[in-house]
Design a protein around this nucleic acid. Sequence first.
DNA 1: GTCAATTCACATGAAAGAGACCACGGTCTAGTG
DNA 2: CTAGACCGTGGTCTCTTTCATGTGAATTGACGA
Length: 402
Amino acid sequence: MTQKGLSDFFSKYMGTSSVFKNKAVLQSAHTPDTILHRDKEITAIASILAPSLRLDKPSNIFIYGKAGCGKTLSARHVTKEIEKHAVNNNINLRVLYINCKLKKIADTEYRLIAQLSREYGKAIPPTGLPTDEVYKTFHNAVDSSKGINIIILDEVDELVKKVGDEILYNLTRINDELKNSKISLIGISNDMVFLEALDPRVRSSLSEEEIMFAPYNALQLQDILIQRAKEAFKEGSIQAGVIEKCAAYAAREHGDARRCMELLRVAGEIAERNNFDKVAIEHIDSADEKIERDRLMVILTTQPKQSQATLYSIVSISIGNKGNIFTGDVYELYKGICTRIGLRPLTQRRVSDIIAELDMLGIINVKVISKGRYGRTREISLSVPGTATPRIKRILEDALSL
DNA sequence: GTCAATTCACATGAAAGAGACCACGGTCTAGTG
DNA sequence: CTAGACCGTGGTCTCTTTCATGTGAATTGACGA
């Protein structure tokens, strides 16, 4: 594009009307004023937390349910309201929200406690201090707050998976040592079976109350979408049937409202970019494709070299043969690739873990099978359609500069 | 033919090491009055 | 005398290796019908 062309482009862009009124409404960070189809759950959380307004320690709550079914939203909504009430009535109540999945912020014991302490205004260095020192700081900070402290641990399962359940035990036990304050925990997890894997002592104290969030069905998703779309889009900029299709797509994927809204947002962006004044049904299809493509691209390019090399060898083998792929084959080829690009090959033990990680990311499918006399191994298959494999291979070749 | 033992090729767990990053306190050094 | 540079120690964190143990069905081989 020439510079003149660029200027034309921008003025034309300014001239075209957007289909959006307020795109932020469709972003996952947005909190709507009213939460649809979660009345029962919200009331349940509220009634459990209510004693805190009388300075009694409310029970710990464990909330679980699939992704994008309103767990975090509901918990934050209730705690925000309760905080408001506390302020109005001069009650010393504090709500801390921590997302345990956030890398470099709260994904280890040290970081979580440090982050919590920071919420109380204590400066904690990112590393270098002994963990019990940080615990002490946190303990003092909480105790001097003299009130009820509700700590929301979002995606606790991720934390526990990484560092074990000891941290939860420590947190629940802190109450015994606090003189002036009390801590209540709200654990939020996507993982349904997470609780069963916990130490029984931790389990019983963390889940004094349990609340299950069922996934939204297609109709509920429609309601939610209509509510958001009203705010997000200009009137009349959505074709009939778009919302329904969007909801149906997401309902198929475990009723994930977050994904549903992303779908609608991206569809809107696609419509806009192609100078449509309405979001049409076919834009949903393109959006679905684009989201999937982008997700894959991000995963592929952000993986460490070792994972990329492992995946590359899996992809290479899968292109050649239609049969099954086993760990041993992958490792052999992987070693070859490593020497070719000057990478120090890892041990098979580690590569085995990397394969499991790739499975978790959803790029490959892995099944542990026993071939009888011929040993036990992982049967690996790509979980992306065969038509996409050459593209993946090219991306990885680029990334590895092969 | 039947049944238990064996065997393979990894899976899976636990522990520990390497190297990067960081805080903190003590020591050294150069600049200043 | 003092501020800043520079070390050594001790801590976390991530990625990895090493060592050890587990696993499930095909295969094998002894046994009896």
